[in-house]
């Protein structure tokens, strides 16, 4: 089986400013990697490359063997949707539809039958422990609840093999941050997928299998 993520010799630059150079990373199945580094070191930029929202200046990225570099934007979008689940600091839920529909949204847009998509959403919500919120609107969810729903959305797809999270706990208090990290790493292990979690929080990093500092490049 292909590893969830392999990164080789990545270089990220904005104009003349080279942010990341010669960066490599290998994430195994069931493994959660914490991505740390000072503010402005390029964590978010790197994650954008991983999910194919932008292209690195050089280097190679593969998600479960599928190249994310040197392919068209459409191919990257397919991989992003099929293979990657994402969670961000702000949960970015759509206020116009309810919790279950939020989780099921990409399935719905792929033409899955409504009932099947909503059932998958409920399973995913159950896995992160918030099945009872399924029919609620998103406007009045607490921060922790919203993050869990966001995580359920990231994990809803059976085919996904990499979780990419950018400071998912930044807006949560200590207890909730720890709980969510446990939940993420537990799910990753259970489903045998990989995870890259950018964070400033040492307690989150402690719960991951490995910590990668973005400063010391060429870590492998």
């Amino acid at each position: 089986m292909q590893p969830p993520l392999t990164v080789e010799g990545i270089e990220i630059a904005y104009g003349d400013q080279v942010l990341v150079k010669g960066f490599g990373l290998h994430v195994d199945a069931g493994e959660s990697v914490a991505l740390m580094g000072p503010s402005g070191s390029g964590k978010t930029s790197l994650l954008h490359c991983l999910v194919g929202l932008s292209r690195p200046a050089a280097g190679e990225i593969r998600i479960a063997g599928n190249p994310m570099t040197g392919v068209s934007a459409a191919r990257r979008a397919d991989a992003r949707r099929g293979l990657i689940g994402t969670a961000y600091q702000t949960p970015d839920l759509l206020a116009e539809v309810n919790v279950a529909e939020n989780v099921a949204i990409t399935l719905l847009f792929e033409g899955a039958a409504r009932e099947d998509a909503l059932a998958a959403a409920r399973r995913s919500l159950a896995a992160v422990g918030v099945e009872h919120l399924a029919e609620r609107g998103v406007a009045n969810l607490s921060g922790g609840e919203a993050q869990r729903v966001s995580l359920a959305r990231a994990l809803v797809r059976e085919s996904m093999c990499l979780l990419v999270a950018d400071e998912p706990t930044a807006s949560l208090d200590g207890t909730n941050a720890v709980r969510l990290s446990d939940l993420m790493t537990g799910m990753v292990r259970e489903r045998g997928i990989g995870a890259v979690i950018a964070t400033h929080d040492q307690r989150v990093a402690d719960r991951c299998d490995r910590v990668v500092e973005l400063r010391d490049v060429t870590v492998r």
Binding site: R81, T86, D92, I105, F109
Partner: peptide
């Protein structure tokens, strides 16, 4: 960007 982050594509 809200829709894109929710997982929708540009065209969608």
């Amino acid at each position: 960007s809200r829709l894109l982050r929710a997982g929708l594509r540009d065209g969608e």
